[in-house]
Simulated assay, not measured.
Amino acid sequence: MKINIKFDKSEPLTVHWAVWFYILILVNSVMAFGLITFLEFDMSENNAIYMLAMIPCMGLVVGAAIIRIIRTLKLRMKKISDGINRVAEGNLEVELDLNHSGEYRDMYRNFNRMVRELKNTKIEMQNFMNDFSHEFKTPITSIHGFAELLQEDHISEEDRKQYLQIIAEESHRLALLSQNTLLLSKLDAQEVITDKKVFDLDEQIKKCTILMFREMEKKEITLNMELSPVKYFGSAELMHQIWMNLISNAVKFTPHGGEITIIMVSVGDQITVNISDTGIGMDERTIKHIFDKYYQGDSSHATIGFGLGLSIVKRIVDLCGGDITATSAPGLGSTFSVVLKAPVHRSKNK
């Protein structure tokens, strides 16, 4: 249930406080001028008393206006203070009403945006814990179950090999999950890349495709590559993570007999790498969240994944000072474009 913090309808319309002060000063100046003028030209007792009586009236008008202004400002500050207290207590359904927020409108808007971000983060974390628990519990259960079966004496040699294969595969899944989680935590805490060196970026991408060759061969995927020879100055280990994640994703979501195309061009100090596939594609909602931590476009878990791979890629690209975008449509495949803006060196001996 959403909690709205609203202003009392009896509050005055928002007017810039400088205008109010200007009007007050103008009115009181006119009244003071009239008071002095009358006292100078007509010093009769009645007029003097009448004019002198205007002085406290002027003070009351100014005092009442200032009190009203201060009360309104305090009320508006109290609204955001109450909202902060509720958020501190764990209530993320708070929303400040922007009507009559006056000069605090930007503060209220930013507060509402902050609460929405906290709420989205909380939801993402809850989804991650559910997915993580599911992915973590399943292989452990399989390993435990098949390990117990291996202890029995009556199983055949064929079944024993099959059980050992399953244990090996599930162990690999656990290792991969742990590795990705630790890597993402490390990257989140990292601000500067230190282990930089010059290496052949095109050769690195070729090696990554070779590592995925067996998987592509199983699905009879055609690989097309056009790679400009480029020497890049950066972290070879982190760049390897980028290409392996993007290529493995392309293989994972490309159907039997599909195609994967990798194109790298270098213009000046900018490298662009496009990795395209003829896979299942993504809708607009998935594209919008594809780089979010713990997000999985395939909520059915039909494909193996943890929702961490593209988050890792995005973080590495950001650390390199580059950019990554995704274009796709359901049934029409996907293209991931990585733009590296760090200094590069063209290879002359290719």
Score class of each variant (00 low, 15 high):
174 L>G: 11
226 E>G: 06
186 K>R: 15
207 K>N: 05
170 E>D: 15
221 I>M: 10
205 I>W: 01
211 L>Y: 08
173 R>H: 13
190 Q>D: 10
220 E>F: 05
196 K>I: 11
241 Q>P: 03
172 H>K: 14
183 L>Q: 15
239 M>S: 08
189 A>V: 03
228 S>E: 15
169 E>P: 02
179 Q>K: 14
243 W>D: 00
227 L>W: 02
224 N>E: 14
207 K>F: 01
227 L>M: 06
212 M>N: 04
237 E>T: 07
204 Q>N: 06
205 I>R: 04
228 S>A: 15
174 L>Y: 07
175 A>S: 13
216 M>E: 02
227 L>A: 05
227 L>I: 06
229 P>I: 02
219 K>L: 07
239 M>I: 11
229 P>Y: 03
217 E>C: 05
235 S>T: 02
193 I>T: 08
174 L>N: 07
184 L>V: 13
241 Q>H: 07
174 L>D: 06
240 H>C: 02
201 L>I: 07
205 I>N: 00
176 L>E: 14
174 L>K: 08
181 T>W: 14
179 Q>C: 05
240 H>L: 05
197 K>S: 09
218 K>V: 09
221 I>F: 05
231 K>V: 08
238 L>F: 07
171 S>I: 11
232 Y>W: 07
186 K>L: 09
221 I>D: 05
172 H>W: 06
239 M>R: 04
172 H>P: 02
212 M>P: 00
222 T>S: 13
236 A>G: 06
177 L>G: 08
171 S>G: 15
217 E>H: 11
204 Q>A: 01
236 A>C: 10
206 K>G: 03
172 H>V: 10
235 S>M: 02
187 L>A: 05
221 I>S: 03
212 M>Y: 03
242 I>P: 00
187 L>D: 04
243 W>S: 01
196 K>C: 13
239 M>N: 06
227 L>N: 04
224 N>V: 14
175 A>D: 12
241 Q>L: 05
197 K>A: 12
235 S>P: 00
177 L>A: 11
169 E>M: 14
188 D>P: 06
186 K>N: 12
220 E>R: 13
195 D>C: 07
218 K>L: 06
190 Q>S: 15
176 L>A: 09
177 L>Y: 09
215 E>F: 11
189 A>W: 01
178 S>R: 11
186 K>M: 12
174 L>P: 08
230 V>P: 08
219 K>Y: 07
241 Q>I: 00
214 R>Q: 12
237 E>D: 11
231 K>R: 14
181 T>P: 10
212 M>S: 07
204 Q>P: 02
196 K>H: 05
234 G>S: 06
209 T>Y: 03
189 A>R: 07
198 V>D: 14
243 W>R: 02
203 E>K: 12
219 K>W: 04
243 W>I: 03
